[in-house]
Simulated scan of single mutants.
Amino acid sequence: MNIGILGGAFDPPHMGHVELARRGIERFDLDRLLVRVVEEPGHKDVATAPQIRRFLAELAFAPLDEAEVSLDPFPRTVDSLQALALDDPVFLVGADEFASFLAWKEPERVLDLARLGVATRPGVDRATLDDVLARLCKPDRVVFFEIDPLAVSSSDIRARAAAGEPIAGLVPGAVAAEIGRLGLYGAE
């Protein structure tokens, strides 16, 4: 069974996350995709409670039959992967995350526990990615695949919601509706 993992704060989950999941499922022929909503990310602050972010992620990834959303109690990827103890899963990341991979906690151990599926898009500086790859002991554990570019970020969505600007098309419709209904990120 091919298992993939997509972890993140998902504050909120957006169309870029969904596209990464969809393309990752296709590229690696995944039977299951574990979408892990990190309760307390070690690398960023979150504006929303973990249970709400999990609920929004369930809505966002609902169209993908392979996706299973759960909370991840571990702030660092390596700890989460060790606890999951899966047989050679594919951990999906965006190219921007891979660019900082060497700063992750125990990056080489991450590669022992999972292959990395790195989503690239036009405009990403491939030289930076190649530099990171060249510095790894197991570069063969990293697979690049291309996704359609989507100019969207969770921080931009939070700012737009706070300013009362529309977020339709940046997040799945059900997520936009719940952000409005719950008044998240200062949304009216």
Rank of each mutant, 00 (worst) to 15 (best):
D130C: 07
Q51G: 15
D87S: 15
L170S: 00
V38Y: 04
A163E: 14
F10I: 05
C137W: 09
F144P: 00
L182G: 11
L170C: 01
T77L: 12
D125Q: 12
D79N: 13
L20Y: 01
D88I: 02
E39Y: 08
A95M: 06
R54Q: 14
L113V: 06
A176R: 02
L170T: 01
A161V: 02
V143L: 10
A60H: 04
D130Y: 09
P13L: 02
G8S: 08
L30P: 04
T128L: 13
R126S: 11
D45F: 09
V152C: 06
E19Q: 13
D87Q: 11
D131G: 10
A168R: 15
T77V: 15
L64D: 06
P41W: 08
I157G: 00
S154C: 02
G8I: 03
L116N: 00
D140L: 10
R53S: 10
D125M: 09
H43K: 11
L150P: 01
A119M: 05
G169T: 02
V143R: 13
H14F: 05
M15L: 14
S70P: 08
D79P: 03
V124T: 11
A127L: 11
F98C: 03
A163K: 09
P122H: 10
E146N: 07
P107K: 08
G173P: 04
R160F: 03
L59S: 04
A85C: 05
E58P: 09
